[in-house]
Design a protein around this nucleic acid. Structure first.
Lengths: 217, 217
DNA sequence: AGCATTCAGAAACACTGTTTCGATATGAAT
DNA sequence: ATTCATATCGAAACAGTGTTTCTGAATGCT
């Protein structure tokens, strides 16, 4: 106890730096709380993320979490944004190709693997795991950012005349919705067998590419 | 209080009919509880369905609900099955047509309207509104039954050579997943504008039909 | 009619998100 | 430096959830 009293007694005259140091401390605490929540979520699933468990892991009272995030929705939003970053990273890790068709296929594969490797994040972001959280503008922008590679490749394909449809976002949404549908039905237990789900997913990818990419025959 | 004591004192000698009457009573009670839960759900949403609120509406202790349904998951399952019946009815209400292409389009429209008119049921069935409930065999069969019209029309289209793909269930799942994806992204707040969502939905239907129905040109 | 069994129904338990409130400690002012 | 006001801390309480206990009462069988 009284952990910070030593720190604050180091120098008592630099008044202006005090709030800054405290804010830094608060920011670090904030990040640690998000990390703790993420750890619990990935280990035991989104429904295991309770304010009390996070507070227990952080060895702090729940009030601090409420001070920093307002309510559970605020913490959920941070996990949502964290997931967006992970998805963005996953897409960025896919090597670009001149063949837009093949590149889009690889991005689709990356999306599937993201849903497998970060299932809890996927459920928070797109599966409604935290029913209290609905994405608002900032969260929607984060998704938009995460999908940037997909948007880019489709935009390019349109510009180069490989895709007839003019509106890139329309195509992106159609692709996204179709693939999300397969993943979500699988995660929801409606398509239980994973192989079956993967087969459906790959067929969806192929069908979408066939639909949008004019095959010049 | 002692409501049933009058009933049971009507005739005390017909011993064999007693359990039957009681089972009937239990069955009626069971149906009333499901109806009460459904009413709460449709009025205030799935998250408002709590054992206590249902018990309060039924003016009975929560124990009775636990006796009849085991736990909340058991009650959720009944709502799920109820939703399947409603969806089946909605599909059956679509007039059959010889033109499989057009018929499938109308079934797709009915599916969209079901998700609009019975959003809570849709969320319970396919949106994971009751996270504790995952469909087991009986529930999966109920979905299969509800989708019967869709399965039939696709099977027929394959038999008649309009669809090249051989496996009807594969096609059904691909169609279902794509359309569910649009609906679910919309209900989840990722595609907020309803008009946009409907446009995407209609385009998905068109794309799917174009993909699977060989256009004889 | 008596007896065993079952079941109703209130209360309690364990857990959740969230808020309250007194004690504490902090930051500013004289 | 001491005082005062403010802000924060942190335990406890509140309201609500799913579920289980437990006692008294009614039920069904002998």
């Amino acid at each position: 106890m009284h952990k910070s009293s030593n720190l604050s007694s180091i120098d008592a005259h630099s008044v202006t730096t005090y709030p800054k140091a405290k804010l830094q401390h608060a920011e670090i605490l904030r990040l640690n709380i998000i990390e703790a929540a993420a750890t619990i979520m990935q280990e035991y699933g989104p429904e295991a993320v309770t304010i009390r468990k996070v507070a227990e892991k952080m060895e702090c009272p729940t009030k601090i979490i409420y001070n920093l995030f307002g309510n559970k929705e605020g913490l959920a939003k941070e996990l949502f944004l964290e997931g967006c970053k992970l998805l963005a990273t996953a897409f960025q890790a896919v090597p670009q190709q001149d063949d837009q068709n093949s590149y889009l296929r690889d991005l689709g594969q990356a999306y599937w693997e993201f849903s497998r490797n970060y299932t809890s994040y996927y459920m928070v972001m797109f599966g409604g795991a935290f029913s209290e959280f609905k994405p608002e503008e900032e969260s929607l922008n984060a998704i938009f950012t995460a999908l940037q590679q997909v948007i880019a490749v489709i935009t390019k394909a349109i510009e180069q005349g490989f895709i007839v449809e003019k509106d890139p976002l329309l195509v992106v949404n159609l692709v996204w919705a179709s693939l999300h549908g397969v993943i979500h039905l699988h995660l929801g237990g409606h398509i239980q067998n994973e192989e079956t789900a993967k087969t459906l997913y790959d067929r969806s990818v192929s069908n979408l590419i066939q639909t949008f990419f004019r095959n010049d025959n």
